[in-house]
C-alpha cells in the first residue's frame, strides 16, 4: 500500500504533455480550418481532400499526450489518469485552435469578410436549403449573437475533450507499461 502510494506520489506532472499535444493539434486543427476556408473563398466549394484529411485528426491530441507522458519515466498509469490527460489535451487543443484562428484574422484582416461572403454565396447556391433558412443563416453569419458564440465555443471544447478522453485511455493501453489495479 505504502509502495503504491509512493509510486502515485512520484508520478511526473502531465501539464507539459497536455500543453505540447494541445498546441500541436490545436495548430493542425486551425491550419485545417484556414486552408479549408481559403479553398472555399477561392473556389466557392469545399475541398473534399482537405476535409477528409483533417477529419477526426483533432481527436488524437489525447493519444499523443499519453505518448509523450509515457516517455517521461518508467511508471505505471491508470486508465482514469489517461482519461484526464486526454480530456485536458483535447480542451487545450480546442482553445488554442480558436486562438490560432483569431491570431490569423489579425494577420490577414480580409480573411474573415471573404470567408463570410464565400459562405453566404455557398448557402445561396445550395438548392437543398429552404429560402427562409437561407435568410436565417445569412443573418446569423452577418451578425452572430454573443451567447451563441460562447455556447458553441464551450460545446466545442467539451466534445473535443470527451473524444480525447477516449483516445487518452487508448494511449494508456498502447503506451502504458503496466496499469495500476483497483
Amino acid at each position: 500500500m505504502e509502495e503504491s502510494q509512493q509510486q502515485i506520489g512520484s508520478l511526473p506532472s502531465y501539464w507539459n504533455s497536455v500543453i505540447i499535444a494541445g498546441a500541436i493539434f490545436g495548430l493542425i486543427s486551425a491550419i485545417g480550418q484556414l486552408v479549408g476556408g481559403y479553398v472555399l473563398i477561392n473556389t466557392g466549394e469545399q475541398s473534399n481532400i482537405i476535409n477528409v484529411g483533417f477529419c477526426l485528426i483533432g481527436a488524437f491530441a489525447g493519444f499523443t499526450a499519453l505518448w509523450h507522458y509515457n516517455d517521461l519515466g518508467d511508471f505505471s498509469m491508470s486508465l482514469g489518469r489517461g482519461a484526464l490527460i486526454g480530456f485536458l489535451a483535447g480542451a487545450v487543443a480546442a482553445l488554442l485552435s480558436m486562438g490560432f484562428v483569431w491570431i490569423w484574422k489579425l494577420i490577414d484582416p480580409s480573411y474573415e469578410q471573404a470567408f463570410k461572403q464565400a459562405n453566404i454565396a455557398m448557402i445561396e447556391n445550395d438548392g437543398s436549403i429552404p429560402d427562409e433558412w437561407k435568410q436565417m443563416s445569412i443573418d446569423m453569419i452577418h451578425d452572430p449573437s454573443l451567447m451563441m458564440t460562447i455556447l458553441t465555443s464551450i460545446g466545442g471544447i467539451v466534445f473535443m475533450g470527451v473524444l480525447n478522453m477516449l483516445t487518452g485511455m487508448l494511449g494508456v493501453k498502447v503506451f502504458g507499461k503496466k496499469e495500476e489495479k483497483f
Binding site: 469545399q46 483533417f54 477529419c55 483533432g58 437561407k134 460545446g155 466534445f159
Partner: peptide, 18 residues
C-alpha cells in the same frame, strides 16, 4: 438552419461535416 445549429458547431473542430 443546420449550418448554425449548436450540434454542428460542437463538432466543427472534429469532423469535416460535408
Amino acid at each position: 438552419p443546420w449550418q448554425i445549429q449548436w450540434q454542428h458547431e460542437a463538432f466543427s473542430n472534429l469532423c469535416h461535416q460535408n
